[in-house]
Amino acid sequence: MTRFAALSLTAGLLALSTAPALAEQTYLDMSASYTSSDLDGDTLDQYKGHVATELTFGKLTLSGELNGSQLSVDDSDIGVTDFRVLLGYDVTSAFTAFVGTNQTDLEGEKISNTLIGAEFGMNNYAFGFAYADLEIDNTSSDAWQIYADYNTDAYGAYASVVRIEDENFYLAGFERDTSLYDASLDYTSFEDVSLADLNASYYLRPDMRLNGTLGYYDIDNSNITNVGIGAGYQVADNVWLDLNASQLKGEGDTMNSVSLTLSTEIGAPRLRASERIYSFYDLYENLYIGDF
């Protein structure tokens, strides 16, 4: 993957946004970012791209997501690409069955899973379960997940349990959105790893905001903290440009980072499984902290 491949991924699913009139686009989320970090005199450059969209065709819901990341350290590069697709069918107005696939490439190592599941929705609540056949280098594993989700314009919350072979993953989160501020808290726990992140934005005016991040990570009994501040400006309708600085500090190591992110998000996914189903790319993002 070339240096700018992660950023170019943001164009990957744009064709879906120009689908025929018979399809209704209910969600679009895109971002591209560059992060420069300094770790004990070494420079780390990371490029990331993300596109997610959802289309509905009557009783059918199609969601797709494309992610890419390239991390460069001296002369070494670590590249990851990730593609996910979910297709849901409304059996009833409250019950949706879905199938999907997730393909990830980590420096030539292929990770894939095929899943089947169902989601029950009632008012602003959603409850779902999924079974996945996870394959890594021709070795298959069974994976299960159950989740609960609550979502309104002002509040959001979720809880989920993922089981891969004999290992359990626990995920939970809460968010609050107002015209004055946005805030979210996310927690992930598995094996000897516990990760907690608090993110918030305060709007000085509708097109200008201040950002803050606070993270606490317990990884194999080693404590890591992450503190960040920044600001954002709305350069076009629903398009934000954010500049943030952060410091990741562990036992004896400190990493200072500056990031620039261009992002947009319109609507909300109708099929909550598209956000709740845990993937290998999510795990990679979590473990990147541990590699610090």
Rank of each mutant, 00 (worst) to 15 (best):
V235C: 13
Y47I: 10
A11D: 13
K249P: 04
L185T: 09
L262I: 12
L260T: 04
S246C: 10
L271S: 05
D142A: 14
N102D: 00
I289P: 02
L134A: 11
A15K: 11
R3A: 13
T10I: 13
N223C: 05
E167R: 14
F98W: 07
F57P: 06
A196R: 13
Y34M: 13
T261I: 03
A118Q: 03
G108P: 06
L9I: 11
T104C: 00
D90V: 03
F190R: 13
G290C: 05
L71T: 10
L283I: 13
S184T: 07
L55E: 00
A6L: 11
D75K: 07
F129G: 15
S112T: 14
D197N: 15
G267Q: 10
E109I: 06
V51G: 10
E65V: 03
A245H: 04
Y217A: 02
L87N: 02
L283P: 09
Y27F: 13
N286D: 11
E265D: 12
Y281S: 07
L204K: 05
A97D: 12
S274K: 09
F174Q: 01
T96C: 09
E175T: 12
T261E: 07
G230S: 00
E24S: 13
G41R: 06
D38H: 06
E251C: 08
A245N: 05
E265M: 11
D282I: 06
N211L: 01
S184M: 07
T96P: 06
Y27K: 10
D137M: 12
E251N: 15
Y34G: 03
K48M: 03
L260K: 02
N168T: 14
I277K: 02
Q70T: 15
A52C: 04
Y158T: 05
D197P: 08
A231D: 00
L262Y: 09
A148R: 00
K48L: 03
D75G: 11
M1P: 04
D40L: 13
S222K: 11
N151M: 01
Y125N: 14
N138Y: 08
E65G: 00
S201P: 06
A154Q: 14
Y216Q: 14
Y216I: 14
R205K: 12
N286V: 08
R205W: 08
D192N: 14
E119F: 05
Y155W: 09
G79F: 04
L44I: 15
D90P: 04
D82I: 01
N151I: 00
A268E: 11
A21Y: 08
R176N: 04
L243G: 04
A172N: 05
F169G: 07
N138R: 15
V91H: 11
T104G: 02
A159T: 14
S141E: 14
D166E: 09
T261F: 00
G156N: 05
D197K: 10
A143F: 01
L171E: 01
Y34F: 08
A143L: 06
Y181D: 08
I146G: 15
E191H: 10
K110R: 15
L214G: 08
S63R: 10
I277C: 01
N223W: 04
A94F: 07
S33C: 09
T56L: 04
S274Q: 12
A172I: 03
D207H: 07
S31F: 08
I78T: 10
S8Q: 12
